[in-house]
Amino acid sequence: MTGASAGGAADGSRGGLLAERAQRTVLIGMVAYVALGAFESLAVSTAMPTVAAELDGLRLYTLAFATGSAAGVVGMLVAGRWTDRRGPTPPLLAGISLFLVGLLVAGLAPSMPVLLAGRTVQGAGSGIEGVAIFVLVARVFPEARRPKVFAWFAAAWVVPGVVGPLLAGAMTQYLGWRWVFLAVPVLAVPALLTLRPALAAGRTGPHGPVADGGDTTPWRDVAGQVLRGARGLGTVVLVRALVAAAFVGAQVLLPLALTRERGLAPALAGAVLTLHVLGWSAGSWARGRGGPSHAGFLR
């Protein structure tokens, strides 16, 4: 996300573009949608060993996660410029659409290559919507409330982290792994309906396109800083990438090792993911609660 998106949104939302009641409604929808995304991520990690075995695609197991992650990076790059020019609503709607279509393709996949295609579409959509929803937070909520909003985003991972792997394992064992993918689009509709006030507020940028000002550093220069581990932004991005790689690596490979090497049922193997999700959520929640506050807002 470029400077124009964050800076412009911050200026435009000073005091909030929506009334407090509308902000609460939008936050409920955002948290519900983040929780669905968290459930999907943990559920797929739990179910994927079974998926790969049934589709005879164990050799492509890691690609089922790598293709989505790579597509997500591309989606984030696209979303940064897109939100600068058009505001967060168009890319958010496009990202959500791609995410849900990818889930449907993966859930109905007759083979592992088709599932990989669905995961790629899903990953691109996730990358786009992730950037857009952060910009939308800055557009809808005043600055003093944003740390609490992000704390609620972290909290949205807690319930899926506790019950998600167990529920996904039970679904995989008794209903079939396809429902792990197909259930999310059905549940996403009510959450998306509550976002309508925010989507209306975010259809256009408050200060026009990126040419009005902001960070115009070419993305190739930023990429070079990251690859060199340059002091400042490059180091920050590189460290975050390494931490994310460790986090996702554990999430991806632990269920596979526990099911194939230890013979655990999917529900028990996925339950291990609960521990690292709870740790991450607790840290994010503590950091968000330590930021600026607003009296009486979602205490």
Rank of each mutant, 00 (worst) to 15 (best):
V140S: 09
G270C: 12
L100R: 03
W179P: 02
Y61D: 04
A6Y: 13
A132N: 07
P142H: 06
R240C: 15
R81Q: 09
A211M: 09
L167Q: 10
V237Y: 14
V162C: 13
A52T: 10
V101G: 05
R240Y: 15
L100H: 09
A245K: 06
P91K: 00
V248E: 09
P218N: 07
L18M: 05
V163G: 09
G16L: 08
V121G: 01
R139E: 11
A6R: 12
R86K: 06
F181R: 01
S111R: 12
P88L: 01
G29I: 03
A144S: 13
G291S: 03
R262F: 15
L199C: 07
Q173A: 14
V210C: 00
D221S: 10
Q122G: 04
L18S: 03
P266L: 12
M1W: 11
G125Y: 01
P292Q: 03
A269D: 05
L242D: 11
L60Q: 10
R85A: 07
T67Q: 09
G214K: 02
P90Y: 04
G232L: 12
V114E: 02
A155P: 07
V162K: 09
G229Q: 11
T25P: 07
A138F: 15
L115C: 04
F297C: 01
L98G: 05
V114N: 00
A244F: 15
A43D: 02
Q122L: 14
V140R: 08
S284D: 06
A151E: 01
L256E: 02
P113C: 13
W179M: 08
L58E: 06
R289A: 06
V101D: 02
T89H: 00
P292E: 00
L58P: 03
A124I: 03
V236S: 13
L108H: 07
A109L: 13
V189L: 12
A168Y: 03
V135W: 12
A10S: 06
L60D: 02
P266K: 13
T2G: 06
R228T: 14
W82G: 00
A241F: 15
A191L: 06
D215R: 08
A19F: 11
A188N: 06
T50M: 05
R178P: 02
L108Q: 04
A10E: 05
A47W: 01
V186P: 03
L98I: 08
M30P: 04
A124Y: 11
E143N: 13
V277G: 03
S41M: 14
E143W: 15
A241M: 15
G3W: 02
A47C: 05
T274V: 13
P165H: 12
